[in-house]
């Protein structure tokens, strides 16, 4: 386990300096929309919160952290906060493979495709699409989170945004529950799958669903993906820990303790693999972490885009 103080201060400095916890400039992270033709305005504004885009960088930084966890080198992390955020961020971005970065954007392209197919009136503006600051909140840096969230919320409010579509549970929770409480600014927030509407099909497929904690317990939305899949004839093989009682994938522990993260992930994967069905996740952190096990895991958007 790394010293939490070193990790928190590094992440907090990066967010303060660059608005990204990894220090990577936004133009290097958020590229998925460039070859997708999306309007700038609509009834809803699509806000990705950059979480899907961060996954290849999380994977790369975790590989390094794994290497040094429990060694004498781990104590050097305390000096990371003195490094300018952009410098370490650009370094990390350059070490991450282009293929992985491109793959991370595919889920967002699929989500945009699904929303269009469902005739949802939405727009996308990359300048308004910012990281929510949720990691600072989860780590206990309340001051850092509130300062960042206020900037993000104000930018959205100043642009006249009232209705938001989110794509991951962490950003959804931040904007829906935390922003009103800590910034005083509220938006109507929908997760993308709440707005999907396709023609019924009878595909006769069966899958195992891994519910992310924030959709299952905090936002209580886990029945909706099941309805969307069910409408296409994709049914769920029920496992013990699901829905409101879902079990953590271990993903959020990656920065503090990659070994703990792996321990939790292996337990969860064993449970998910047992029925022998394809596994569906609907959170970029869960998806990335569960995939590390080598198990066949797909994002909800991927299976939907393939079958509608």
């Amino acid at each position: 386990m790394f010293n939490p103080r070193d990790i928190i201060e590094t992440l907090a400095n990066n967010v303060r300096q660059t608005t990204s916890p990894f220090g990577i400039p936004k133009f290097m992270v958020n590229k998925w929309h460039k070859d997708v033709n999306l309007p700038e305005e609509g009834e809803y504004m699509l806000i990705t919160g950059l979480m899907y885009q961060f996954t290849p960088f999380i994977e790369k930084s975790t590989q390094y952290l794994e290497k040094y966890e429990g060694t004498k080198m781990a104590s050097l992390l305390k000096y990371a906060k003195y490094m300018p955020g952009y410098l370490s961020g650009i370094g990390l971005a350059m070490m991450t493979s282009g293929k992985e970065k491109k793959n991370a954007g595919q889920a967002l392209k699929d989500i945009a495709f699904l929303l269009k197919k469902s005739k949802v009136d939405f727009g996308y503006r990359p300048d308004l699409d910012n990281y929510s600051g949720i990691l600072l909140y989860d780590m206990g840096d309340q001051k850092g989170f509130v300062a960042h969230a206020k900037k993000v919320a104000k930018k959205l409010k100043d642009a006249g945004v009232k209705k938001i579509i989110t794509v991951d549970p962490h950003t959804a929770y931040a904007i829906k529950e935390l922003f009103p409480k800590y910034t005083g600014i509220s938006f109507e927030v929908k997760s993308y799958f709440e707005l999907l509407d396709f023609e019924s099909k009878d595909l006769g497929l069966e899958v195992t669903i891994h519910d992310p904690c924030f959709f299952g317990r905090y936002l209580k939305l886990s029945d909706i993906p099941r309805k969307v899949l069910g409408n296409l004839g994709i049914t769920e093989f029920k496992i013990r820990n699901q829905g409101e009682f879902t079990s953590c994938c271990g993903g959020p522990a990656e920065s503090i303790s990659p070994s703990l993260s792996n321990e939790i992930m292996e337990k969860r994967v064993e449970e998910l693999k047992e029925p022998g069905k394809p596994i569906i996740a609907y959170c970029p952190i869960c998806l990335g972490n569960l995939k590390k096990s080598g198990a066949k895991v797909e994002d909800l958007s991927t299976i939907l885009a393939r079958h509608i």
Binding site: M139, R217, I256
Partner: peptide, 16 residues
Amino acid sequence: NSDELWRCLHCGLCTH
């Protein structure tokens, strides 16, 4: 014992 606090990932199962 504060380091122990950060092993918690705020999954919410205990609260639930």
